[in-house]
């Protein structure tokens, strides 16, 4: 069974085809990147898969469960780090993590051990008692990502996780990703192409809501006759437009 099976999914906003008839599959344990220029439809696709919006047409299965018919069952499998930082401002760092563990139904003991683990992995111990609204932007971001991972999701969505992180924090996040890689299926969006190139098993490129290309970094380079992944990406998204 695939972790994700997207079946001709579309999301229209009036005339705007934010996601247009996309079909793709992701195997369990795979790490894939969703790339595309601003407005290509990456976040919309993630919002569809995480049940925040309902498709105009089509469906998607997460571990065999339909996002349209079984949204509640799907949600217990997911971890989501939204593109915008999403934290509870008046709670401390620790309390934010405990909140996410709690709403996923963890008992007191498990909540404590998972919270300790995440605080260690994300080097949050110096700020754990600080109210999250007083953190700097990058530290808020780290917390927001940690909150997505604490529930031990089967499928993890990270929408531009490294946005606004300094190089140390990015390295840390890559380490965390390497740690959970294989146990969880990970869908990542990013505008740092070298990051996608280095981390992902496979890459999907969206353009105007449509799936433009799919494959490993090498396959995409071969397909476009380029040697650098960045060149391959530019060629693919500029295809048919004047370069």
């Amino acid at each position: 069974m695939n972790a994700i099976d997207i079946q001709s999914i579309s999301k229209y906003y009036g005339e705007k085809h934010a996601v247009d008839n996309v079909s793709l599959s992701v195997a369990q344990g795979e790490l894939v990147s969703l790339l595309g220029v601003n407005g290509a439809g990456k976040s919309t696709l993630i919002n569809l898969l995480t049940g925040l919006i309902t498709p105009t047409a089509g469906d998607a299965l997460i571990h065999g469960k339909s996002i349209v018919k079984d949204p509640h069952q799907v949600k217990s499998l997911l971890g989501v780090s939204p593109q915008e930082t999403a934290i509870a401002p008046n709670l401390t760092v620790r309390e934010n993590l405990e909140l996410m563990a709690g709403v996923h139904g963890f008992d007191r003991k498990k909540t404590k051990s998972k919270t300790d683990e995440l605080i260690a992995n994300f080097n949050l111990s110096t700020v754990e008692k600080q109210k999250s609204k007083t953190l700097s932007g990058g530290w808020k971001r780290r917390l927001s990502i940690a909150m997505a991972i604490i529930s031990e999701p089967k499928v993890l969505f990270l929408d531009e996780p490294t946005l606004g992180l300094d190089i140390l924090a990015r390295r840390e996040l890559w380490q965390v990703i390497e740690k959970i890689r294989g146990t969880a299926t990970i869908v990542l969006t990013t505008h740092y192409l070298e990051e996608a190139d280095a981390l992902s098993d496979r890459i999907f490129i969206l353009k105007n809501g449509r799936l433009e290309a799919a494959g490993t970094s090498d396959e995409l380079k071969q397909q476009t006759g380029t040697t650098k992944f960045e060149d391959a990406f530019i060629k693919l998204v500029m295809d048919g437009e004047k370069a």
Binding site: K75, P89, V103, H104, S151
Partner: peptide, 18 residues
């Protein structure tokens, strides 16, 4: 209203909360 604007509510909408 604040939870809605800070995206916290949409984050919680992706959890099994009813």
């Amino acid at each position: 209203a604040k939870d809605r604007t800070t995206a916290l509510l949409s984050r919680l909408f992706t959890t099994p909360m009813t």
